[in-house]
């Protein structure tokens, strides 16, 4: 068998492959089929007995001044966690933690970098975040730890808040 034969044989194979691929692509829609969420996992851990007694976490909510709504903590299926996106329009995200059973709020400032990535023509841009540092008030918060500072479609950014 010469290279010419191989080329001809491969040519036939290639044509079949092209036809199959054309068929496959012509059947694909223009919808985004990739993961586009870049959410920070925020784990809420209450160790203070007084807060546990008044069921602080059961009526806990999280919001930001720029949000039009808030996230209410729900025990069921949450693994003590809430998920939200960091600010796409600033390198600082301010998150306020409130509970109806206490008078004061706590505020967390997350300082991060934003990276814009075009993940596919259909899905468009997503914002990945890299958390540099954070600061927080200490009304009820005891400590906050960054467990994973990369927030992207592949990496689950993760912080832990101890009360």
């Amino acid at each position: 068998m010469t290279i010419r034969d191989i080329v001809k044989m491969k040519n036939t194979g290639y044509c079949i492959l092209v036809l199959v691929a054309i068929h496959f692509f012509s059947c694909s829609d223009d919808k985004c089929n990739l993961e586009t969420d870049t959410l920070l996992k925020t784990e809420l851990l209450v160790q203070d007995q007084n807060l546990n007694q008044i069921k602080y976490i059961d009526s806990l909510s999280v919001y930001s001044d720029e949000w039009t709504d808030s996230i209410h903590y729900s025990k069921e299926g949450s693994n003590n966690s809430i998920f939200f996106m960091l600010s796409p329009n600033s390198d600082t995200t301010q998150i306020i933690i409130t509970s109806t059973v206490v008078e004061l709020n706590d505020t967390i400032f997350l300082y991060h970098k934003r990276n814009f990535v075009l993940i596919s023509p259909e899905c468009g841009f997503v914002v990945n975040f890299n958390i540099d540092s954070l600061a927080n008030t200490r009304n009820y918060i005891d400590s906050v730890f960054i467990r994973n500072n990369e927030v992207s479609t592949n990496e689950n950014g993760h912080i832990q808040i101890y009360f």
Binding site: S64, T68, D69, I71, N89, F116, G124, F125, V126, V127
Partner: peptide, 19 residues
């Protein structure tokens, strides 16, 4: 370069930027 990049989210208001 990129223009009119809109980032949508359930909580944050629509953010549009150019690079």
């Amino acid at each position: 370069s990129a223009e009119n990049v809109s980032i949508e989210d359930d909580h944050w208001p629509l953010f549009t930027t150019s690079i």
